[in-house]
Design a protein around this nucleic acid. Structure first.
Lengths: 132, 132
DNA sequence: CTAGAACTTGACGTCAACGTCAAAGGCAAA
DNA sequence: TTTGCCTTTGACGTTGACGTCAAGTTCTAG
């Protein structure tokens, strides 16, 4: 398949696909005229790349990661980085959930106009952590 | 307190504090000489701002949100945006957790060099969602 | 009163993952 | 062959939350 079809299938732009290639995340063969050609497996590869981006990894880290995925072998140095990134995502999840509770408190403020618990949730959570 | 102390206490840069003020997120009184002065409550305010940033909200949205927090009253239009943002954070949490499992699979690959389950987790999760 | 740390505004720099535009060439169908 | 969509490389633009530097002012300890 060519770049347009892959973009459609994977739900990204052609610009993104060229960018991924430029960053060493995605390979392609070429037609005689120089146009990029991808195997069907490229779709899953792009989805994986997107997912790793979603995890907050940079293209540089992903570029180091993908060969290990393909070879199914992770060296000790890369493992250290993986543990680091995993901790980072876990922390981010926790932060996001905490922030989500802030939003919930605000939403409760709007939907239950005269509850007493809401203000406490809004103001004091930051001051004393998150547990009561 | 002045800007440097607030920055230290809240764990942000002075540049960030001035930026928050510029964006209408943080107020300050001034000394006769024009230097910013903050009340002790500003520390919690900054932490709240940081938390909302962490939730993925932009400064513009936060600027609309904070008055509602102070007034403890959320209008219907803002409520709609809140529900939207809350859904966004929930989705982001889910994505982050999915991506975290990818990282876990890679980590397992490094720590249990010859398990059979790992490759499946690595490759096929994207192809069929996330449930087995 | 004076050194020097802390503060002021203003303005340009950064970084990542693309968006967008331009000019040119490739490809498939009629 | 011609029409017209797809693709190519190259290069500049965007966005958000600050970083950073500069030149000048204010505050405070001694």
């Amino acid at each position: 398949m060519r770049i347009g079809e892959l973009a459609d299938r994977a739900g990204v732009s052609t610009r993104a696909l060229r960018y991924y290639e430029e960053q060493g995340l995605l390979r392609s063969s070429r037609t005689a005229g120089g146009q990029r050609v991808y195997p069907p497996s490229a779709e899953d590869r792009v989805r994986l790349i997107r997912e790793l981006y979603t995890a907050g990894l940079t293209s540089r880290v992903i570029a180091e990661l993908l060969p290990a995925v393909d070879a199914r072998h992770v060296g000790p140095e890369l493992l250290a980085r993986l543990l680091d990134e995993r901790a980072r995502t876990a922390a981010k999840v926790a932060e996001l959930q905490a922030a989500g509770q802030r939003l919930d408190a605000l939403i409760a403020l709007a939907t239950h106009p005269d509850s007493d618990a809401c203000p406490a949730t809004l103001d004091q959570a930051a001051a004393r952590g998150s547990a009561p």
